[in-house]
Design a protein around this nucleic acid. Structure first.
Lengths: 201, 201
DNA sequence: ATAATTACTGTAATTATATACAGTATATAG
DNA sequence: CTATATACTGTATATAATTACAGTAATTAT
């Protein structure tokens, strides 16, 4: 999918705004009017270019027959089991995706992670729950974080973090604290947990 | 807002399905074709009737200019504290509403209920969580249900249910079972819990 | 009993819309 | 240097679509 030019992006945004506002796409004339074109054909040709680049589909003969092709940025991936090695968001880990427009929770969620195991039950995070993870939300002591230790992904509470000692705690008395020297073991903090979904009770 | 006739509802559903499918409303001819009318005017007149009843707005002169008026049925209420007496869904209990189209979870959710107290922590239902409640989902032994006992609303697990004995259990050892004789005390089962949302961790 | 509503057929006109064709001009890629 | 892409104007036309008008018939409200 090639990149749109500035003008083409402007037109795509106009189409999206029109749909959001009125519930249906604009006509060529609508677009021309909005952008000051003196010919509807200017809009027509832009639409063809945008279609060629894969962002829309034009239905021939149908008035307002512009279909937006789902942009992947507008989808939140749900990550199931994370394969060892490789990034969390690698395609093989994506169980399904959820349109961002349908997300009821914080709009700072980069992905949902399906919980495995019972290490966080004491704070109400159960196996099969979906945790909303933000890569940008700041992780401070006490935050529930997604960490990767020697290529294994885990969800734990961050208890202590200094240059040569990081302590992660399971919220379940049956588990011991995980104490890591990040200079010896490979440790990456992938994000922090900001919300939770349970699809069945 | 008057009720639609069967036929009018059929047409409104057709419009919604068309929008969901293609992203824009159907023409009069589309509607006529779908329902087997031999004249587009049949569709036109139905649309006028549906508009008169307040379900849509027709933009004159615009092709496919049908705007759906937001139906309140398409909003899922979030119920905060339930005032004693009166129905759960009474307006004063509604904290906010969520467009049904944004609901990621089961589409059988009639409302969300904000959890008060810690009586269900052992199965991961915490204070301030939002529980998705279905009025129609069948409640069987073992289901987590929303019950109303003598005008007080509570969330518990249904353990036993016979003509003169109903047992509800808190999922927290510190609480005793609630044993009710429905012939003596007022008991209503409002629905069963089918999903959970936690807005912050 | 009479008017209004529902539920259509059938025809036709006006307007809305897509879309082809012929240009102009500039920028960018091979 | 030449083809291709970008970004338009301007005109024209076929067809898509709304919408008015004239009916028929059954049902429902007053």
């Amino acid at each position: 999918m090639k990149n749109l030019t500035k003008r083409q992006e402007e037109i795509l945004n106009l189409i999206k705004a029109h749909i959001l506002d009125l519930g249906f796409p604009p006509t060529r004339a609508d677009i021309a009017r909005s952008l000051g074109f003196k010919s509807p054909n200017a809009a027509e040709q832009h639409l063809r270019a945008i279609e060629k680049k894969g962002f829309i589909k034009i239905l021939s003969g149908a008035s307002r027959g512009i279909i937006l092709n789902d942009n992947e940025n507008d989808q939140i991936p749900v990550i199931g089991l994370v394969a060892a090695g490789g990034p969390i968001l690698a395609e093989e880990n994506v169980e399904k995706t959820i349109p961002r427009s349908n997300n009821l929770l914080s709009n700072d969620i980069d992905y949902y992670l399906r919980v495995k195991g019972d290490s966080m039950v004491d704070i109400g995070i159960f196996e099969e729950d979906l945790i909303g993870v933000s890569k940008s939300a700041n992780t401070k002591i006490g935050s529930v974080i997604v960490a990767r230790i020697n290529n294994e992904v885990t969800v734990k509470t961050l208890i202590e973090m200094s240059q040569n000692k990081v302590v992660l705690r399971a919220e379940n008395q049956e588990y011991d604290d995980i104490i890591i020297n990040p200079k010896v073991e490979e440790l990456a903090i992938e994000g922090s947990c900001v919300a939770l979904l349970r699809e069945s009770i």
